[in-house]
C-alpha cells in the first residue's frame, strides 16, 4: 500500500512500565493506522464529492481500488463509520450516508417544544397515556409523599421533523397541579408552559442522569424500529423556582438519531 501525502507514520513512543505490557500488546496488534487513514480518505471523498445524506457511497471494490487498499481493511474503516452512525448499509443496495443526528443543546434545554421550535424544527408530540395513577416507590421518595399518592402519569412520543425520537414519561403530584388532567398534551401543548400559565409554576432547573441502554420491546414498537436499537435513558428531575421538585421524568431517546451538545464557557484566567 502506498502512503499518500499528508500522512506520516511515527513509531509509537511507549513508555514501558508495570502492567503496561498487555495494553501495549493490544496496541501493537491493532496499530490500526491504516484503517484510520482509510477512514479519513473516505471522509475526504465524501466531502470533495459533496455527498449528502441519503446519497450512496461508491462500492467497496471502487473504493479499495481508488485508495489502493485491501478489502478487509476498507471494511474495518466502514464499520467504524457505521458504528458512529455516519453511514448505513442496506443489503444488496449498498452503503448510504446517514442524516446528521439531531443535536440537543443540553445547557439551555428545558422544554422540548420551545427549544426545538426556536431551532426551526418541526416539533410534534403525541400523547400516549395520561392518567392519574398511584405513585411508585421512586416517585414517592422524590416528592416525599406516601406510597400510593395520586400522581399524573403523562407519556408522550416526541417527534422532530416527523421522526419519532423520544418517549417521555412525566410524573407530577396531583396536589401540585389539580385539574391538569383536563388538558390534552397531544397537540404540541407544552407541559411546562401549561404549568406556568395555569399554576404559576416555572421549572427552573433540571437534573439529568444519562445512560446508554437498549430499547425494550414496547419502545421498539412505539418507534416502529427493528429490535436491538440503542437509546439514551435519561431520568430527570424538574425543579421549580422555589426549589420544589415538581416533575420526575424518564426519557428514552433514540441514539441513532440524537446527540447531546454542550457549550462550556471557561472562566478567563486573566
Amino acid at each position: 500500500m502506498t502512503m499518500p501525502n499528508g500522512w506520516c507514520f511515527t513509531r509509537p513512543r511507549f513508555r514501558p512500565g508495570e502492567g503496561e505490557e498487555e495494553v501495549w500488546k493490544i496496541m501493537s496488534k491493532y496499530t490500526q493506522l491504516v484503517s484510520d487513514k482509510l477512514r479519513e480518505d473516505i471522509e475526504e471523498y465524501i466531502d470533495t464529492h459533496h455527498l449528502k445524506e441519503g446519497d450512496k457511497l461508491p462500492s467497496e471494490r471502487f473504493l479499495a481500488e481508488l485508495f489502493k487498499a485491501n478489502r478487509i481493511t476498507l471494511r474495518k474503516a466502514l464499520r467504524q463509520m457505521a458504528g458512529e452512525g455516519l453511514i448505513y448499509s442496506i443489503p444488496t443496495q449498498g452503503t448510504f450516508l446517514s442524516q446528521p443526528k439531531f443535536c440537543e443543546n443540553v445547557a439551555g434545554f428545558i422544554s422540548f417544544s420551545s427549544a426545538w421550535g426556536e431551532d426551526g424544527r418541526r416539533v410534534g408530540s403525541k400523547q400516549l397515556k395520561f392518567a392519574v395513577v398511584d405513585s411508585d416507590l421512586k416517585t414517592s421518595r422524590l416528592f416525599g409523599v406516601p406510597l400510593g399518592s395520586k400522581v399524573y402519569e403523562l407519556r408522550r412520543l416526541r417527534l422532530l421533523d416527523d421522526v419519532p425520537v423520544s418517549i417521555e414519561t412525566s410524573y407530577l403530584l396531583e396536589e401540585t397541579c389539580p385539574g391538569l388532567i383536563r388538558f390534552d398534551f397531544g397537540h404540541n401543548r407544552s407541559l411546562y408552559q401549561t404549568l406556568f400559565e395555569e399554576y404559576g409554576i416555572r421549572i427552573r432547573q433540571q437534573q439529568q442522569n444519562i445512560r446508554a441502554t437498549k430499547m425494550t420491546e414496547e419502545e421498539t414498537e412505539i418507534f416502529c424500529m427493528e429490535p436491538g436499537g440503542s437509546v439514551f435513558y435519561i431520568s430527570a428531575v424538574g425543579i421549580a423556582e422555589d426549589g420544589r421538585s415538581i416533575e420526575r421524568s424518564i426519557c428514552v431517546t433514540r441514539a441513532d438519531r440524537y446527540a447531546f451538545g454542550y457549550r462550556v464557557s471557561l472562566p478567563s484566567a486573566r
Binding site: 458512529e84 452512525g85 443526528k101 443535536c103 444519562i210 446508554a212 440503542s230 437509546v231 439514551f232 441514539a255 440524537y258 446527540a259 447531546f260 451538545g261 454542550y262 457549550r263 462550556v264 464557557s265 471557561l266
Partner: peptide
C-alpha cells in the same frame, strides 16, 4: 470555550 458532544 469548549464545545462538547455526547453520543452513543
Amino acid at each position: 470555550e469548549e464545545r462538547q458532544r455526547l453520543e452513543i
